[in-house]
Computed example of a mutant assay.
Amino acid sequence: MRRRTLLSSLTALTAAALVLTGCGAKAKDDPSPAGGAWSYTAGDGKTYTADKTPKRIIAHAYAAKALMEFGIKPVGIYADGKVGADVGLKGVDFTGVTILGEEWGKIDAEKAVTLAPDLIVADWWPVEKVYSGQEEGVEDSAKKLAELADVVGPAQGDSIVGVIEGYAKLAESLGADPSVIAAARGKFEEAKTRFQAATAAKPNLTALAIGPYDNTYAIAVPKYAPELLDFQKWGLKVIDPQKPDPEFPYWESLSFENADKYQPDVLLFDDRNHPGNQEKLAAQPIAKSIKAYAAGAMTTWPAYWLHTYSDYTAQLDRLTAFIQGADENIGD
């Protein structure tokens, strides 16, 4: 269970990639810009510069959504699943944008060559030390995308706000209107204030973020889920599971027989797989032993996809209303 490998011959692709790479931005380990017309310090710690501001951008779908909120539209995107079914891409108009892949680890790199990109944009994942779309396990041909132009983007860290701000900074460097960014940021700050007021009124409310699937009761580890870390910082007591999986510490995986190990006041289901994951738990005899489930104290959490101020504003307001109606004594 992840947070969330084309063609047999790549001779022509490799040749084209080498030509296009020479036209792209240049990375420098030294964080000081070298006087280029465009510069951006990415999540990998490198500063990228170019003589001209990049215009032809290929982006991971979530990164594309972030840029588009600020008026920067890519020429191509690649997604981890079907664009129309992805909860994190609802409402995005990708008309005129070439879709290069709708399955994790698969990117049509030959089609990407025809787009002549001068920049690739995606999240940097510090745990894996790689950008989205270049992780271990993706198809070799998908990795050829990084040969077409430099890959940049903000790092996932201990706050979604940091990721969004990283994209705002990148968008501004690419020509976004600062006033549009400021307006979106202001609405978000108001929503955050409302969320904090709701949690302050329920200081003992505990929550468990879960993603039941197959034969596993998966519990999210806030350390690797920046939205959950934000909720903790803003007053919601999201439970930290005791024994994260050694090989993939984003989760603690329990058998359903042990699913009542933690007794929170509310359950937060991974919204990427909802309602299927809630139905999975409902089918288990143990469900009635989980007090929050028995009480119907359940909602969803925005799992790993938040990249824009508008989405975060909407999610915080939804959760604020839920918290205001929650009982902080269920898990006792």
Rank of each mutant, 00 (worst) to 15 (best):
M1A: 14
R2I: 10
L6N: 09
L13N: 07
A16L: 03
L18S: 14
V19C: 06
V19I: 10
L20H: 12
K26I: 15
S39T: 15
D44Q: 14
D44F: 08
D44P: 15
A50I: 12
K55S: 14
A61Q: 01
A66D: 04
M68K: 01
E69T: 04
E69S: 04
I72F: 01
G76E: 08
V83K: 05
V83P: 10
V92K: 01
D93V: 13
D93P: 11
T95Q: 10
T95C: 09
V97A: 02
G101I: 01
W104D: 04
A112L: 02
V113F: 04
T114A: 13
P117S: 11
D118W: 00
L119A: 00
V121Y: 00
W124M: 06
W124S: 08
V127D: 11
V127P: 05
V130C: 08
V130E: 11
V130D: 05
V130I: 09
S132G: 11
E135S: 11
E135H: 08
E136D: 12
E139A: 14
E139V: 10
D140R: 10
S141P: 08
A146R: 12
A146D: 11
A146I: 06
A149E: 01
V151E: 01
V151Y: 00
V152R: 02
P154A: 07
D158M: 10
E165T: 13
E165I: 10
A168F: 00
K169L: 07
E172A: 11
E172L: 13
L174W: 02
G175N: 08
A176V: 07
D177R: 07
I181H: 00
A184V: 07
R185K: 14
F188K: 02
E190Y: 03
K192E: 13
F195Q: 03
Q196C: 07
Q196I: 13
T199K: 03
A200E: 09
A201P: 04
A201R: 05
A201M: 05
K202A: 05
P203I: 04
N204M: 02
T206K: 03
A207L: 08
L208K: 02
D214R: 12
Y217P: 06
I219Y: 08
P222C: 11
K223L: 14
Y224N: 12
P226V: 09
P226H: 00
E227R: 06
D230F: 00
Q232R: 12
V238D: 01
Q242V: 13
P244Y: 04
D245H: 14
E247A: 15
Y250W: 09
L254W: 03
L254Q: 09
N258Y: 08
A259H: 03
A259R: 02
Q263V: 05
D265H: 09
F269C: 02
F269W: 10
D271S: 08
N277H: 06
K280H: 01
Q284A: 10
I286E: 08
I286S: 08
S289G: 12
A292I: 02
Y293A: 12
Y304R: 15
Y304V: 07
W305R: 01
H307L: 13
D311R: 07
D311P: 12
A314C: 09
D317S: 14
A321N: 12
F322M: 11
Q324R: 15
A326H: 02
E328H: 14
N329Y: 11
